[in-house]
């Protein structure tokens, strides 16, 4: 399909018609409703159920981390952001639990592969997107920070999504 381009006519070569036409279109937009722009800090976008915010660890009903420290998330993480150390435990119905679990948020690319890999749904990408850290020393999120309560996405959602 050849694109045909007609040469500009005499009228079009005068600047004025194009300017008038352009201004009339932009003027129309001035009165268009609704406005598309979102006034960000005041209005906040609502993340959808699949949203990939920063990773969080999930707790069971008693408040223990669900993680069994299998290390799959650390193995699959493309930029190697996860470091964890396992420990044996007797208090729980399973035998392993993490003593330390760190995610380097300076490296994490929020790809969601840890969530995809975890066999017990112990790590999920939350719907938190406001992630500004000024101090580079605070980029590494320790286990306490990762286990903090947060409102939002339920782990079941992911199960539902990946039928």
């Amino acid at each position: 399909m050849k694109i045909q381009y007609k040469e500009l006519s005499f009228w079009e070569k005068l600047y004025l018609p194009a300017i008038v036409k352009g201004l009339s279109i932009t003027l129309k937009h001035l009165f268009m409703w609704p406005k598309f722009t979102m006034q960000y800090p005041e209005e906040k976008p609502e993340p959808g159920p699949r949203f990939r915010g920063f990773p969080k660890l999930v707790k069971d009903k008693e408040g223990h981390p669900k993680c069994v420290a299998c290390g799959l998330c650390a193995a699959v993480c493309p930029p190697h952001a996860i470091t964890l150390q396992a420990e044996e435990t007797e208090e729980l119905s399973w035998e392993r639990t993490p003593v330390s679990f760190e995610i380097d948020m300076g490296r994490c690319i929020l790809c969601g592969m840890c969530e995809e890999a975890c066999p017990v749904e112990a790590i999920v990408l939350s719907d938190t997107y406001e992630l500004v850290i000024n101090d580079t020393r605070k980029w590494v999120f320790e286990i306490d920070k990762l286990l903090e309560d947060w409102e939002g996405k339920e782990t079941e959602l992911f199960l539902k999504n990946r039928k």
Binding site: R50, F51, R52
Partner: peptide, 12 residues
């Protein structure tokens, strides 16, 4: 794209 993949830019 965000609804579909979870992110706007780095879709994977």
């Amino acid at each position: 794209f965000e609804k579909l993949t979870g992110t706007r830019l780095t879709t994977s």
